[in-house]
Amino acid sequence: MIPAQFEYSRPAGVQEAVRALADGGEDAKVLAGGQSLIPMLRMRLAVPSLVVDLGGVSDMRGVRDDGDALVIGSMTTHDQVLHDPMVREHAPLIVQATSTVADRQVRHMGTFGGSLAHADAAGDLPSVAVALDATFEVEGPGGRRTVPADEFFVDYLTSAISPDEVLVSVRVPKLSGWGTHYEKFNRVAQAWALVGVAAAVQRSNGTISDARVALTNMGATPIRARGVEEALIGAPATSDALASAAQRAGEGAEPSSDLSASAEYRTHLATVLTGRAVAAAGGI
């Protein structure tokens, strides 16, 4: 299909992009990597009056060290994230999840921030951001503000970004001494996750001293599996203890039923995949 007619803007800086969005109003759309927006334009599921292409904003690309955290520019491609040595060292969970995103072609074009801002419940990176307690730097006409990951994802395909704001970067705390793993189940290669689990586990003297677990596609937004975390922290680092904790994966989740899977099946998957993810993250 052919998209409806729209105006096009390619700003060179963040503030110029913000002004373009403000001028375009609520019908303006941001183009990052385009891997989600372009299909929606072609099917006319999105009919914007203006498309603001962020491809020319160099300040929104790259990864930098910020002491106890990494700052990842929102226009950094998935492939660049995958091969960045700082991300691989300090945030391996991001690498593990990003390596499962679609295929190489999509990873070369799609962007880290675009995937997060799209806020798809079946996307792999939102749950990772929640598990890592990431913070989002958003800029609009009123200046720049910080949004924690657990407040960023509001509803299905809805984030805390206002129509006149852009996601500039994501700040990810470094996890030193943690084991991480991303476990995903999909029906065919390169498909969206039926369910995914992002897990980070810290061990000390044979016990789990800390844990972070978040679920993909178990609700309209990423779900922090607080029950699993509570069961893990202080528990012995054994397969039985981890399997017992994984039984709480469905607590607080609201999985949907669709043509791909029922809510009951997704809950079963969450339990199984959580057990695998925390065991791999804990080195068990």
Rank of each mutant, 00 (worst) to 15 (best):
A129E: 14
T180L: 07
R145D: 02
D150Y: 15
E89S: 10
V30F: 02
S176V: 14
S127N: 15
D23P: 11
D155C: 09
P222Y: 07
E89Y: 05
R44V: 04
L116C: 07
P236Y: 01
A246F: 00
T271W: 07
S257H: 01
S9F: 13
G219A: 02
A211S: 03
S162I: 05
W192Y: 15
D84I: 00
D120S: 09
L232H: 07
L273I: 02
A189F: 12
A263T: 08
E139A: 05
L273H: 06
I233C: 09
G56M: 06
V95W: 03
E251T: 12
R248E: 12
P3M: 07
I233D: 06
L31P: 06
D53M: 07
A270I: 01
Y265W: 00
E264S: 09
Q35H: 02
T158I: 13
G252H: 08
I233P: 10
V130N: 08
M75K: 03
A281C: 08
L167C: 10
Y156A: 14
V188E: 13
V81R: 11
E254N: 14
D155L: 05
A261L: 05
S204T: 07
L157T: 07
A261E: 04
A102K: 05
T146E: 13
F152T: 11
L125A: 15
M43P: 06
L54F: 03
T207W: 05
L132A: 13
S257M: 03
N217R: 01
V63A: 15
T100G: 11
F185Q: 13
